[in-house]
Write a protein that binds this DNA or RNA. Structure first.
Length: 395
RNA sequence: GGGCAGGUGGUAGAGCGGUCAAUUACACCUGACUGUAAAUCAGGCGCCUUUCGGCUACAUAGGUUCGAAUCCUAUCCUGCCCA
């Protein structure tokens, strides 16, 4: 059985549906990975995620290494058992922290030296160390440690970063093979994926993609995007990398994005996505809603259809205008919040600091994202992806 | 009736002669958020004005002073203590 089965290709774009087979089950693509950085999708249970149709979640090497420590997770029998999630797990390598914790780290050939925020001690995360930690966590998809500078993109620095990422990749692969052959890994079926860097420079993206393909990875992630660059720059970066990756391999777009970004990137050929947007913004009161749910100019909303292509918008539930709005957040949504509560109530929960506010809002946004992916899969399957894509605009 | 301490912007509570339209917190309003140092962060929050600036304000009424939320007098009100 191939690692990745392509089920249907969209005739009008590079979009496709497929299935990734992992040691903990299948992933229907295009897929969205809810983010559970520290071994928990904030305020949400594993059972709920599974019930809503999340096939896979993402956790973070850097954070779990720091606390509770990968040795403890190993003792617990791996992250799946530790957190009670039976499905596939994707672990980020800590590469993103190379970028996001810029003020407290130093990039060196051997790896990245971090000063932990918890206790101030310094530790070096090397490509080997990252692989070791991910092996102890027992994720189904592990990533190589990568390096990337932030935005604005600079050619020379980006060139250095793809070269460093390549050298690190080689070391990561060697370590991964060593663990598989010599060790007693928590998850013998774990796959190591490569990461393509290169900012929005065509030649660097091409070079980085070819570097990674040459290593023989079975899956690839595109990194270094959504770091503050304009949307078009991001799409260019993706479009420069994808043609150089094997069509038969799954491609993940790291850290992306808005519904608009996801629809666009799917059209370019990306299969999986992860992003903090639905969960973080939920905690801040920003909710994603289908466009048909918002009052039309005539003042009437229309209930969403199963195969709708309606697009989306957002609301800030904290806004005063929702104080006495006794209608659901999204008429077309089937989440617990929308089926049971009003905007007025949710706003009240936020205003009073009730923990339930965060939970309900997170439930809603995750359901929105997971529903979006289901709509995308359906649209590709039934040949109306192109039409659907035109309705998803930047907001 | 006497003594003491007070009355400051939605609330609490700083300020105690000029740099005060008034620190700070909370509340309130708005915005940001893309491989999570994020249940976080930023801005606004007397009135008019795009800015500059102007106006009205620190219980009330007078007064001292070049200048008062800040000092003095009276009045009203609040809390505590003694009768």
């Amino acid at each position: 059985m191939p690692y990745f089965d392509i089920l249907k290709k969209d005739p009008g774009s590079q979009a496709r549906t497929g299935t990734i087979h992992t040691a903990h089950g299948d992933i229907q693509t295009p897929a969205f990975l809810p983010i559970g950085t520290k071994g928990a999708v904030k305020s949400i249970t594993s059972e709920e995620l599974k019930f809503w149709g999340a096939d896979i979640i993402l956790a973070n090497t850097y954070h779990l290494w720091q606390r509770p420590g990968d040795a403890l997770v190993y003792k617990a029998g791996g992250l799946h058992k530790f957190m009670g999630w039976q499905g596939p797990i994707f672990t980020d390598s800590g590469g993103f922290q190379v970028f996001s914790l810029a003020k407290m780290r130093k990039v060196m050939e051997v790896g990245v030296m971090f000063q932990f925020d918890m206790d101030g001690r310094s530790e070096i995360l090397s490509p080997e160390k990252s692989v070791d930690i991910q092996a102890n966590l027992g994720s189904d998809i592990a990533l190589i440690l990568d390096d990337f500078p932030g935005y604005p993109f600079e050619y020379e620095r980006s060139k250095e970063s793809i070269a460093l990422t390549k050298r690190w990749a080689e070391r990561a692969i060697r370590e991964h093979q060593k663990i598989v052959i010599d060790g007693d890994p928590v998850n013998p079926g774990q796959k190591l994926w490569g990461i393509v860097q290169g900012a929005s420079f065509p030649d660097l993206r091409e070079q980085s993609a070819k570097d990674m393909v040459a290593f023989g990875f079975e899956g690839f992630a595109i990194g270094g995007v959504a770091v503050g660059e304009p949307h078009e720059e991001m799409m260019k970066a993706v479009s420069y990398a994808l043609p150089h990756l094997p069509e038969t391999a799954p491609r993940h777009l790291l850290g992306v994005g808005t519904p608009f970004d996801i629809v666009r990137a799917t059209g370019l050929g990306c299969d999986t996505f992860d992003c903090v947007i639905p969960t973080r913004e939920a905690r801040h009161g920003r909710l994603y809603i289908s466009a048909v749910s918002s009052p039309s100019p005539s003042g009437r909303g229309v209930r969403g259809e199963g195969n709708t292509t309606e697009g989306y918008s957002t609301i800030n539930i904290n806004n005063e205008k929702f104080k006495e709005d006794f209608t659901p957040v999204d008429n077309g949504c089937d989440c617990y919040l929308c089926l049971n509560h009003t905007k007025s109530y949710l706003r009240h929960l936020f205003a009073t600091g009730e923990p339930l506010a965060i939970r309900l809002a997170t439930m809603h946004n995750l359901k929105f994202y997971l529903n979006l992916m289901a709509k995308i899969r359906k649209a590709i399957t039934y040949d109306y992806f192109g039409e659907m894509a035109t309705n998803y605009k930047e907001i």
